[in-house]
């Protein structure tokens, strides 16, 4: 067992309030590679963990812009360049009639951008996570709250981190193997 690398330390908390204050403590200690596991979304946890706003909107914007300009370009290419046909006395190309299609493509690709961005940033799909090894973690989807600090964090040091987790009110502090 001792040859196995340590993934990190997990500590259990009884209430959302306790885990929130504990998270603030961990944040203030300067840890970067750590996470909070809760059975439901806890409002204010983003601030307590010091998380920045998600980068997903950037992907959404890129997707949307691709859709809009791609749509315009496609219609210009088809109707005005590759095979020009005059319809109803209208110009060969006008942003007017190209707009509805470009608009729909904007929405479609913005939605794709958002979903793909979310998957990429969350590193999904993830079929295995070391925290699942911990027996009690089942309760994280029921009635317990957990903080996991990963050993990859530069500040991680098994003894002091264990002490920290105990000090901030965590119980059953356990090592998780990778």
């Amino acid at each position: 067992m001792s040859e196995e690398k340590t993934y990190g330390l997990i500590a259990s908390f009884a209430t959302p309030g306790e885990v929130m204050h504990a998270a603030e403590n961990v944040r203030d200690k300067g840890f970067k590679h750590w996470d909070v596991i809760t059975p439901f979304p806890v409002h204010g946890m983003n601030e307590a963990m010091g998380l920045k706003r998600s980068k997903v909107p950037v992907f959404t914007l890129l997707g949307g812009a691709t859709g809009f300009f791609g749509g315009m370009l496609m219609i210009w290419y088809m109707n005005a360049y590759d095979y020009p046909i005059a319809v109803g006395g209208k110009p060969m190309f006008s942003p007017m009639y190209a707009f509805p299609v470009s608009y729909e493509l904007t929405i479609l690709l913005a939605a794709f951008g958002a979903i793909i961005g979310m998957f990429l940033l969350n590193r999904l799909p993830m079929h295995y996570h070391p925290a699942m090894k911990h027996d009690a973690v089942d309760r994280a989807s029921n009635d317990r709250f957990y903080i996991v600090i990963e050993s990859s964090d530069p500040k991680f040091e098994e003894k002091t981190t264990t002490a920290l987790l105990n000090e901030i009110g965590g119980s059953e502090v356990t090592r998780i193997d990778d």
Binding site: G88, G89, K90, M96, Y97, F99, P100
Partner: peptide, 9 residues
């Protein structure tokens, strides 16, 4: 509104 009027002409 603009588009429908423009298109119907």
């Amino acid at each position: 509104q603009y588009f429908l009027i423009w298109n119907a002409n």
